[in-house]
Write a protein that binds this DNA or RNA. Structure first.
Lengths: 117, 117
DNA sequence: TCGATGTTTCTACAAACATCGAAATGTCTT
DNA sequence: AAGACATTTCGATGTTTGTAGAAACATCGA
């Protein structure tokens, strides 16, 4: 992961529709979802969704696999880990004691009850 | 953290100069850096840097504090944690067993030896 | 091979954004 | 109060991006 790849990945996520798609696929897990189903779920035309999915794939945040007529998209957790690691590299001058628990992200936990926070 | 706040934060990071600034501040840790020093370090005019720092601050990714003539910027780790948590909420249908170690981000670790990866 | 279904490419345009010089604002020293 | 220093706001310009309809492409079932 280098700086410009990270910018591509962040830009891919920095858009309402694509962020919604990404989070939908995060929730879907390894099974992923097919393109048409994603478009329907989010509520945008197929051409628009195709464009967004291509952007996410170019950013290495999702991967696609053809299943006869359908194309199934799943989150690329490796790509995601690369991005997060890049963002936090050498945190606090490489001294974890200064900030390690600040990043105890509740990965894979249900969202907190109530609001989306 | 809601969807549109997350988009604002991701958009703030999805830009070469701002991403470089953010990572610089991540490395700087709690001490942060003053605006002029950041601009000099990155190599952009003060007016441009001011614009970018304001964007990062609006996104809750950094905080600023005036010190007489200088303005010191530091990473807002709380804001960052909120963003990462939002991205990964309900990962794999809330079943950590499916993906938990996929997100074992080496937070606060030195970047891997060699290239920026 | 034909028609149906699912997805992508093409195209065009409006809206949002990055950049940086100049001027304005805030703060310190004397 | 004046001048120096640090930073922000303003203004103008060129570039990038999101959107979605129409057409093209790929795959399947009959």
């Amino acid at each position: 992961m280098d700086q410009s790849r990270a910018v591509v990945a962040l830009a891919a996520l920095a858009q309402e529709t694509r962020l919604a798609v990404f989070r939908l696929l995060v929730r879907a897990g390894p099974e992923g979802m097919v393109a048409g189903s994603i478009a329907e779920h989010i509520g945008v035309p197929g051409s628009t969704m195709s464009h967004h999915l291509a952007t996410l794939e170019r950013a290495d945040l999702v991967v696609s696999q053809r299943e006869s007529r359908l194309i199934r998209y799943t989150v690329n957790f490796d790509g995601m880990r690369g991005l997060l690691g890049f963002l936090m590299a050498d945190c606090c001058q490489g001294n974890p004691a200064l900030c390690d628990d600040l990043l105890s992200v509740p990965a894979c936990q249900p969202a907190l009850a109530g609001a989306d926070r």
